[in-house]
Nucleic acid binder design. Structure first.
Length: 238
DNA sequence: GCGACAG
DNA sequence: ATCTTGTCGC
């Protein structure tokens, strides 16, 4: 089932407002919990796809069994694009629809794996941190590109990593999930430590560069967008 | 001041 | 993110 969402009341209309909200909410991020043990419980991937032409966004949440990586449940949501893409403000574009997809799940999500950053963010409050604070769930971010952070190239072996640095501060890790393949960029979102975040990502990536959680969510949100955008398939009278 | 910049 | 043909490989 796919739920439909509107842009929330009080959603920021300007970049200035959005940054102020980040600076306020970042104080609620919890960084001193180790997080759920890798390989146990549920791990949920979330992702979003856009059709700017039709002002439509589709989100998907896919729950996996952390031990087997089998799909336990999935949900989707569609809505209007709630904010333009601005580097550093990605969360305001994705969060309303992602929240709706998470709400539509029939079971607890467990650890949530986001596409993008958590702590590795200009104001230390990326998408994963934002989603964590709003839901109270443990979250991590896995990005496909380094933002504006520096890092050494990790050793070629699967599992090797090097710190993502903002000056002296380690805000995340470049993690090699497959031998000789470009690393992914892992950062903590909320209620999870960096070591465990990386351990989760490694377990979630037995075969491909990206975690199964995000691969599944990516495929599902694209399908949901196509369904919502294809004439004759959408809701409403006809 | 200018460019770069998660998705 | 999204736009996009053919092509190499399991």
């Amino acid at each position: 089932m796919t739920t439909t969402v509107r842009v929330p009341e009080g959603w920021p209309g300007t970049e200035e407002e959005a940054r102020a909200i980040q600076d306020e909410l970042r104080r609620r991020v919890v960084l001193d919990e180790p997080g759920p043990p890798p390989g146990t419980g549920h791990v949920t991937g979330v992702d979003v796809a856009y059709d700017d032409e039709r002002d439509t966004v589709a989100a998907a949440a896919v729950v996996l069994d952390a031990a087997t990586l089998e799909v336990v449940a999935e949900a989707t949501a569609v809505g209007r694009i709630s904010f333009p893409y601005v580097p550093g403000l990605l969360a305001f574009r994705e969060i309303p629809t992602v929240l709706a997809a998470l709400d539509a799940l029939p079971c607890p999500p467990g650890l949530v794996v986001c596409d993008g950053y958590g702590l590795a963010h200009p104001r230390r409050f990326g998408l994963a941190s934002h989603l964590g604070v709003l839901t109270g769930l443990p979250t991590i971010g896995v990005a496909k590109n380094p933002f504006a952070f520096t890092h050494a190239d990790p050793a070629p072996a699967r599992g090797s990593s090097s710190p993502l640095l903002a000056g002296d501060e380690e805000v995340g890790r470049a993690l090699r999930t497959q031998e000789g393949v470009k690393p992914v960029y892992v950062s903590v979102g909320h209620r999870v430590g960096l070591d465990r975040a990386c351990a989760h990502v490694l377990r979630l990536s037995p075969r491909y560069r990206l975690p199964e959680s995000t691969r599944r969510a990516d495929a599902l949100c694209r399908r949901a967008l196509r369904d919502a955008t294809t004439p004759g398939t959408g809701p409403g009278p006809e």
